[in-house]
Design a protein around this nucleic acid. Structure first.
Lengths: 247, 247
DNA sequence: CCCCGTCCTTGACCAATATCAAGCAAGCGT
DNA sequence: ACGCTTGCTTGATATTGGTCAAGGACGGGG
């Protein structure tokens, strides 16, 4: 494993406050590995052996049932995923696959469980991280139940814009089919709904998003911090999509 | 506060392993109170001042946005709710109201945060509880995205039946409108969908549910432990509906 | 440069779900 | 017991979202 990987991991909210000795021990049992694009890293239902940390690339978390599939989140560097399954020593609830070539750090779940029992600082970090994850999924569920698909898309675009400081032009960072699945609709529906949003102040051409009338868009989906975030002190890994890039 | 209340709280997974001294201190700052039916205990967005423990009665957790409302969970004795908001010292994501006359124990969030920083056992319990809550919401979200309304209802009824050891006859414990809202549909849709489920092996008359053909019902919605639970060692407060009663 | 695969879009159609409105039934207080 | 409220059901209709099928755009590899 590269030395600067360790530094990056060490700076994650989850690991930054623990004792150095414990961190070192945790990392001793861990190993880094690079995976090609499109590889299934985790299959839902498998026992949770490793906490995963994305160092480079991106990973999709998705769920399936009876042949249907839906995206639950896209995880980008540097953050962790499937912490809860590791802690409970329970089967993964979601599958994971690389969206592109990705380098991951795998930390044995058993080490993890052992360490937070004797490092109070790490326990507190874990608590904070989990509480953040919980709140992020609750927000996601609220969005699904309280908004229709046009509203979910509009809110998603507004969230992207806001994460870039209110930019009126930006690019989508993930494929539309993935956004559609994350927002709980079909790609066809996403496509048509995006078109129909032109009349409330937003145009999408390919990856390019242009908010032509911010006030109108805001009136169409009044953003709500209790749904759209952000949360205070924000690890939300596991249930959101990456932010856009300006331009 | 009644002495036997303390004993019951002490037996909750969240509190059972902590040091007695810390438990006592936590309870010293806490107070019990009885509320009438239909009272709003918490309004979403308010600062999280107290961890709530339901001692008697039942409490609905719900969310709202732009005049729409949806039920997120019904909490029954003895369990806690809104733990995550208290931990993060962040605004509540959900509102709460009593469904019937209820007695609650209110534990100051600041005491909570202080205690798990110095009681490792309590920290571990908190971690386990939160991980359970997180997984419960993830399951809920999976159900919403992967199943249509008929399937969600059938799965809900099967879950009730299974929680009673596979009973073929049982009663619904909460109002249908509440079930509908929890499952993400209108009461009208629930009503019609229930009727249509007769052809796959389940009859509902008022509160009475009769599974007339378990095999057919199971074939219609193959239960999935990764959606329908149960999880190992199961605190799931905050995101489910209560179990039924046989008969 | 062109072919090919992948993703996105579009159209036509259909299914699922919501809405509106009315009627019904059970529970409660007077 | 009566009337009232509340929740449930049903019907008619509108809207939303899904499905199927085809065509178009874009990008990577030969």
């Amino acid at each position: 494993m590269r030395p600067d990987d360790l530094a990056e991991v060490r700076h994650l909210p989850l690991f930054r406050d623990m004792l150095k000795a414990n961190f070192d021990q945790l990392m001793q049992g861990a190993y880094a590995q690079t995976f090609p694009a499109g590889l299934e890293l985790i299959r839902q239902g498998d026992p949770a052996d490793f906490l995963h940390v994305v160092m480079e690339g991106s990973v999709e978390l998705y769920a399936h049932w009876e042949g249907r599939i839906c995206t639950m989140a896209v995880v980008q560097p540097v953050s962790t995923f499937i912490l809860a399954a590791c802690i409970k020593d329970a089967p993964y609830l979601m599958s994971a696959r690389t969206l592109e070539r990705a380098r991951l750090l795998l930390v044995p779940a058993s080490d993890l469980r052992a360490v937070f029992r004797r490092d109070p600082e790490f326990a507190v970090s874990t608590i904070t991280e989990l509480a953040g994850c919980y709140r992020a999924v609750v927000r996601h569920a609220k969005g699904l139940k309280l908004r229709n698909s046009r509203e979910r898309i509009a809110a998603y675009l507004l969230k992207q814009s806001r994460s870039l400081g209110g930019a009126a032009r930006f690019s989508l960072t993930v494929e539309k089919r993935l956004i559609a699945s994350y927002l709980g609709m079909t790609p066809e529906n996403l496509s048509r709904a995006i078109r129909s949003l032109e009349e409330v102040g937003v145009q999408v051409k390919g990856q390019q998003v242009t908010i032509t009338d911010m006030a109108q868009l805001l009136a169409f989906v009044p953003p709500d911090p209790l749904i759209d975030g952000p949360d205070t002190g924000g690890a939300t890994a596991g249930v959101s999509l990456p932010q856009g890039v300006a331009g």
